[in-house]
Amino acid sequence: MITVLFFAKLSEQLGVKSLQVDWQQAQDVDQLFQYLTEYKKEWSVTLTSQPCLRAVNQEMVTNNIKLKAGDEVAFFPPVTGG
């Protein structure tokens, strides 16, 4: 399984903080993202209508990378701390 996390506005809009996705559906980050856009009807608009950053195992990634079972993948809006 892949653990998927959402944060901030994105998590509020999707109504979900985390979910588990079967690795078969998510062999890399792009594939996982594609899977999520089809997860519920309104998710496609929410996920694609705004900038959405990605982190794999708590490291920001900008390119598509391979996933393995047990990985933690997070999606979130641009950060606004400090």
Binding site: F7, A8, K9, A55, P78, V79, G81, G82
Partner: peptide, 27 residues
Amino acid sequence: MDYLKTEAPFWKKETMESGESKWVDAR
């Protein structure tokens, strides 16, 4: 500070005096 502002995963949600709250947009 400059890197923290763009890389560290923190998000601010402001409550305005009107009572409404909104997520702060990245600059």
